[in-house]
Simulated assay, not measured.
Amino acid sequence: MASPTMRVVFDTDIGTDVDDALALAVLLGSPEVDLLGCTTVYGDTLLRARLAQRLARLGGRPLTVVPGAAKTLTDRPVWWAGHEGVLFPDLDQEPVDEGDGVAYLIEQVGRAPGQVDVVAVGPLTNIARAITESPSFARDVRHLWLMGGRFDDPSPEHNLKCDPEAAAVVFGSGAPITVTGLEITTTVRMDAADVSAIAAAGPLGEALKAEIEQWWRFWDEEWNCPHDPITVLTLVAPSLFGFSPEGRVVVGADGSSTFEAGGGRTRITTSAPAEQVAREIVRRIVRERSR
C-alpha cells in the first residue's frame, strides 16, 4: 500500500445527516490520506465526537477526536434532528480526547505550515474561530475543502445558514478554498444497491447501513445525496471533477452564497459525473474493510 500523501483534519457535525459518517468512512478508506484527527461542531459536540470515535473504531481505526464549538458565533438556535447517536445506546461510554477542537485545528495546522488540509462539512464555526484566534491559520493551512452553499440560485444552504457569520469570516480570510455546493451534490444519489454493498464492509459497513436507513426514515425516502463524501472526493480524487477559476464567495446574512470570478483564492466545484462519483464513494468505503 502506498504511503499516505495527504495530511488531513476532518471537521464535522456528524450524527444528523448520514453523509458525515459516510465522509468519515471515505477518508478512512483512502490510502492517500493520513487522517490526523477529527473535530466536531454545532450542538452537542461531545455526542458527535463519541459517534465519530465509535465509527472509526468499528472500522479498526481509533482516531483522535476532539469536540469543538457547540454554539455558533452569534449563538443562533441549533437545529437538532433528535436521532443523533440513538443507534448506539452505550455511546456515553465512548472515550474521546480532551481539549478544544478549535485549539486542535490551530495546533495541527501550525505544527506543519502548508502541509495540512482541512475538510469541513458542517457549519463553519470551528474554522472561523481558528482563523480569528490564530493570525497565521489562514496562511498556514494547505487548503480548505468545504461542503456548503448553493451557486445556481439564491437559496440558503444548511451549513452556511446555520452560522453565516462564521462562513463570512472563512470566505473572507484569504485561505485557499475549494467549496462544493448543493447544485453539484444533489445530482448524486445513493440507493438500496449502494447500501447493500456498504453493509458488507464489516462492522463499520453494518453501522453505516443502519445510519443510512435511519436518515431515510427521517425523510420518508429510500435514497440520499452524499453531500459530504463528494467533498472528500474533491480532495482525494480531483480528476473526477470540474472546478471554476479562483474568485471569491460572498455570504449573505441569511446564509445565501454567490461566487464572483477573480479577486480571491476560492474556487467552486462545477461538474461531477454522478454515477462515477457514487461508485467511487462506495468503492472507498468497501475498501476500508481490507485495510
Rank of each mutant, 00 (worst) to 15 (best):
D97T: 12
E98A: 15
G99W: 09
D100V: 07
D100S: 13
D100A: 03
G101H: 07
G101R: 04
G101T: 09
G101M: 09
V102S: 05
A103M: 08
A103E: 14
Y104S: 02
L105M: 10
I106D: 01
I106H: 08
I106A: 09
E107D: 15
Q108D: 10
V109F: 03
V109S: 03
V109E: 03
G110F: 11
G110N: 13
G110L: 12
R111N: 12
R111A: 15
R111H: 14
A112P: 03
A112L: 15
P113S: 11
G114P: 12
G114W: 14
G114V: 08
V116P: 09
D117G: 00
D117E: 14
D117K: 11
V118G: 06
V119N: 06
A120C: 12
A120R: 00
A120H: 09
G122I: 04
P123F: 00
P123L: 10
L124K: 01
T125K: 01
T125Y: 04
T125Q: 03
A128P: 07
A128G: 02
A128M: 07
A128R: 01
R129T: 04
R129D: 02
R129I: 10
A130S: 14
A130C: 05
I131Q: 06
T132W: 01
T132S: 10
T132P: 00
T132E: 14
E133V: 05
S134A: 14
S134H: 04
P135T: 06
P135E: 12
P135M: 08
F137A: 03
F137V: 00
A138V: 05
A138Q: 05
